[in-house]
Amino acid sequence: MTTRDIVLIALFAAIMAVLGVFPPITLPVIAVPITAQSLGVMLAGGVLGAKRGALSMVLFLALVAVGLPLLSGGRGGVGVFFGASGGFLIGWIVAALVVGLLVERFWDNLNYINAFIASVVGGIVVLYALGIPWISVVAGISLGQVFTGSMGFIPGDLVKAVIAALVIVTVSKSYPIIKK
């Protein structure tokens, strides 16, 4: 790991913090707010690649855990990991990793379509696969019911995957980080 890797990881943790200042949207279906921060998760993997993307999420979550109010809505501290979105927060690490792995795989002919697929698979499918069981356990509600309740978030997340794909492809052309 070079100094440049460390600087990039730290930079993305900071970008996540700034995305937290975008106002969150809350849908009256289930209690996980829609934020620009989950867009940042897709971007971390897609811009930095799997390893650095995942580590930038670890660093960001560590900053939250030590008591900085960096999550959207000014939330922070260890308590948030025990809340309903705890599984999603831990899931960010794996989601960034998966988006990164896919974008690295598509790198030589990266376009809007496969960048979108990478964002959907990592940032939605994998993320929900980790977030839903968590809610199910802490709330004592069955997996199927949490799954149905979470469907209201899918449209917002698909919009985010489109934006992520646009940004990932533009950055890959004008300032490529993954293979330089």
């Binding site: 460390i6 990881i9 730290a10 930079l11 913090a17 900053l63």
Partner: peptide, 9 residues
């Protein structure tokens, strides 16, 4: 990494 990220915010 910690100190850089705090400076980068």
């Amino acid at each position: 990494a910690f100190s850089l990220s705090l400076r980068f915010i």
